[in-house]
């Protein structure tokens, strides 16, 4: 649920990065944080354990610029990927405007990808959303590793509806901004449609 403030002429939207544990959601945000000009970003907050596993969420506010005199801000969140943090994941999905599903391309993580995607659908439904009606993109991360599944198979398993999808290597930043741009664009198009 975006927040439109006519008084301060701002539009705020919430993007959630979802995916199995250790797939690279936080790495995506870290790369965006590092590569964004200081005036366009706020502080990145990570609520993580001592071993740097996300405990509750990561948060990164981005100000992208103005559209028709309105400041456009995106609030980026990640969820904790580990299976047992499901209660936290549900909370973070509240008020979401767009979702990025980050998949781990390694063969041994395929089951975790599928499980996490099912979990995403279930949790969205509980909040009264439908994944197929939300601005939604998929990122196949870790394309630089040796034991990876082919793009065709990843698509078949994780993107049967054919939403925009991107290959990425978040540690060096490949595909990170392409993914963000795609989901932001879908959100803005959705906002435009919703008010016609």
């Amino acid at each position: 649920m975006s927040f439109i403030n006519y008084a301060s002429r701002e539009i705020n939207c919430k993007i959630v990065y979802y995916g199995p544990g250790l797939c690279g959601k936080t790495t995506n945000l870290q790369h965006i944080y590092q590569k964004t000009a200081p005036e366009a970003k706020g502080k990145m907050i990570s609520l993580a354990t001592e071993t740097e596993r996300t405990l509750f969420f990561d948060f990164l506010p981005l100000a992208l610029g103005e559209i028709r005199g309105f400041k456009t801000r995106f609030h980026l969140y990640t969820v904790p990927g580990q299976v047992f943090y499901d209660a936290s994941r549900k909370l973070i999905l509240k008020g979401v405007d767009g979702v990025v599903f980050v998949a781990d391309s390694q063969e041994e993580r395929m089951d975790a990808n599928v499980e996490s995607l099912d979990n995403l659908r279930t949790n969205l439904t509980e909040q009264g959303y439908e994944l197929d009606r939300l601005p939604y993109v998929v990122q196949y991360n870790k394309r630089d590793l040796p034991n990876i599944v082919t793009i065709e198979e990843l698509r078949r398993e994780l993107n049967p509806t054919g939403v925009p999808d991107f290959e990425a290597c978040a540690t060096i930043g490949d595909g990170v901004f392409e993914t963000l741009k795609a989901v932001a664009k879908l959100i803005l198009i959705d906002l435009k449609k919703g008010n016609q």
């Binding site: 439109i4 006519y6 539009i11 992208l64 610029g65 559209i67 028709r68 005199g69 309105f70 456009t72 901004f177 741009k181 932001a184 664009k185 803005l188 198009i189 906002l191 435009k192 008010n195 016609q196």
Partner: peptide, 18 residues
Amino acid sequence: VSDFPFAEITDDDIDNLF
């Protein structure tokens, strides 16, 4: 009634953001 500022945005407006 819609005074929604995004009703008339174009693809170019969105691309310009990035």
